[in-house]
Each structure stands twice: as C-alpha cells, then as structure tokens.
C-alpha cells in the first residue's frame, strides 16, 4: 500500500490531469493514507481488496498522463454517457497495444467507501481503453459506443432484468442466452448513436464470424441493427424496448442525425457540426462516405490510394469534431464575460 501511495502521489504531481481526475486522485490519496496509517486494524481480506482495486486504478490513471489520447472520441462518448448515467464521472483513457476496446468502471472509491466509515467519493472512476493504432481513426472507434452499451447494461441491469423477465429455457443455454443478449443490446445501443456505422464496422472486422458461445453470428447481429434502423418489426428489438420501459430507462431510438458531408469532404474540407446529434451522426455519414470513396470512381479520390483515403477521411472527421469542441469552448468563454 505504501508503494501504491507513492505512485499515486507522484501521479498527482504530473501536470497532465483534468480537474475531475485531480479531484478524484486527491480523494483516493487521502483514503489510502488513512488505510496505511491504520493498516493493522483492518482484516487482511479487506486490505487485499483495497490494494487490488487501488492497484488497478493506479495502472489506468497512469495511462491518463500520456497526453496522447483521442480527445475527440472521448468527447463524443461523454455526450452519449450523459444520456444514460446522471451521476458525475471522472474518465481516464488509456491506449492499448492490442486490439481490445473497453469502457468500464474501475472504481476503488466504492471499495474504500464500503470499508472505511466517513470516506466518500463525489464521482465514479471510468476507464476507457482503445487500440493505440486507432487513436487517430475515429471511424474505427465506433466500437467504443458498443462498449459503452455494455457499461450501461451493467450499470442499469438491463440484461439481468431481461433474464428475470424471460429466463432461458434450460440451464445449459443460460450462459449463451445472457452473452448473446448482451451483444445484441450493445449493438443496438451503438446504433442509437452511430446508425449503420456500427454494422459496417462489424462487417469490416468480423464479416463471416459464425455463432459462438459468446457472440451471435455477425449476419444475425447486423440484421437486428438493420431492422432497428429501418423500423422493421423485430422481436429482439421489441423485447429490449419492453425491458427498458419496465426498468424506467430511456428507449432505444435514433439519437443522431446524419449530416450531408459530401460537399465538404469532396472539397477535402472539415464539416461544420451544428449540434450533438450531428456529431454522433458524423460517424454514420463518415462510414458511408468512406465506402463510396473506396470505389475510387469520383474526384478527388480517383488517384488516391485506399490507405490515404482512410487516413484523410478519418482526419477530416477528427478535425470536424475537434473544431466543434473548440467553438463551444470559445463561445462559452465569451458568454461567461471573457472578452476577446
């Protein structure tokens, strides 16, 4: 615990944190100091649990100091998170060397609150991780909306409630049913924000993936998404709507508007995003635009390699999102009375 405390103290002295993370880190340090000063008074199973949770948080908080995170993707996910989770969250982002995405709670505050009277954390610590290779490829990061779906499911107990409402027929199939329901729900959640982009992404990474214990076949997943987006009746979609309604949660619905980006992107210019719905919808428009550009039939793409097309379109999307963030920050500062 002393070593972790040293590590956390060193982290708190780096100039690289956001205010919410700094606040969280200060609380964490105080709580860990409390534990270390009375270490012998805690049972060993309690100190073990605390140490493990703090260790995990320390590892991920270190990732937050790298200053290479894709702020644009994180910004878009924060907007989506606010639709479902109302309590304050401190988000730390890490870039991974493998191709794994995740969006989960790693909250040591909850563990500390459980065992130490008087300790309270104002916010929940959330960890987002994405492949380092894709840090400047927002179109590939639509996968994080799917991961956010898993996070919301875990937080709000969507699938666990669905299992009570409609339990699996046999014990043998219960694990498969639960896993498949989780995947379908997260796909639909992602489709609420990114439309067909999540289907195109699935198709690009797991085109022929068959039914497995953990995942439905890709073709089955994209069919459910397609039906949801086109408004075609689908029993899986209807079931989730029923579950969400009974849980008092927001319904699955389009929370995006796909902007017409052709004029801007054909001229290799950024698109001026008008609102949050367009910001999410830019990923849908971007994937569709990318598929057209890959055919290399129209200018300006006819003489450009596919690798360059991918880079330029992702860059235009990243910069369009960042420009929206900058304009909002600027207008907020002006509206707060700062003169330029």
């Amino acid at each position: 615990m002393h070593l972790l405390l040293d590590e956390l103290t060193a982290l708190s002295r780096t100039p690289y944190f956001s205010k919410s993370l700094e606040q969280y880190l200060d609380n964490l340090i105080q709580a860990v100091q409390h534990v270390t000063s009375r270490f012998d008074s805690f049972p060993s199973n309690v100190t073990d649990q605390i140490a493990q949770s703090v260790w995990l948080a320390t590892k991920y908080l270190q990732g937050g100091t790298s200053k290479t995170v894709p702020y644009e993707t994180v910004y878009a996910l924060r907007l989506a998170l606010k639709d479902w989770v109302v309590h304050p969250c401190a988000i730390t982002t890490a870039l991974r060397d493998d191709l794994d995405y995740h969006f989960w709670s790693i909250d040591p505050g909850k563990v500390l609150e459980k065992f130490i009277p008087g300790v309270a954390f104002d916010s929940e610590l959330i960890q987002i991780a994405l492949p380092k290779l894709y840090r400047h490829f927002p179109l590939y990061n639509v996968a994080l909306y799917h991961e956010l779906g898993h996070f919301v499911d875990n937080k709000c107990g969507v699938i666990s409630f669905s299992l009570i409402l409609r339990p699996p027929k046999t014990v043998q199939e219960s694990a498969i049913v639960e896993s498949h329901r989780k995947e379908h729900f997260s796909d639909l959640f992602a489709a609420c924000y990114t439309g067909n982009a999540i289907s195109l992404f699935l198709d690009s990474i797991a085109h022929d993936a068959p039914f497995s214990v953990t995942h439905p076949a890709t073709v089955a997943r994209t069919k459910v998404i397609e039906d949801f987006l086109s408004g075609t009746p689908n029993p899986i979609v209807d079931f989730y709507q029923d579950v969400l309604s009974k849980r008092g949660l927001p319904e699955l619905t389009r929370r995006y508007v796909s902007p017409s980006i052709n004029a801007s992107f054909d001229a290799i210019r950024t698109y001026p995003i008008a609102n949050d719905e367009e910001l999410h919808g830019l990923l849908d428009s971007g994937w569709n635009y990318l598929c057209q550009a890959y055919e290399q039939k129209n200018e300006p793409w006819s003489a450009v390699s596919k690798q360059e097309i991918m880079r330029i379109i992702n860059d235009l999307i990243e910069k369009s999102i960042r420009n929206r963030m900058i304009k909002l920050k600027w207008s907020d500062a002006i509206n707060n009375g700062t003169t330029a």
């Binding site: 300006p300 003489a303 360059e308 880079r311 860059d315 235009l316 910069k319």
Partner: peptide
C-alpha cells in the same frame, strides 16, 4: 497541388 507527387507528402494532414 493534388497531381504533383512531390507536394502530396503532407496532403490533408491535421496534425
């Protein structure tokens, strides 16, 4: 600019 191969080295960069 687009058709000059030497000048496309930094084309469309946002960083």
């Amino acid at each position: 600019y687009m058709n000059d191969a030497n000048m496309r080295k930094y084309y469309g960069d946002v960083r």
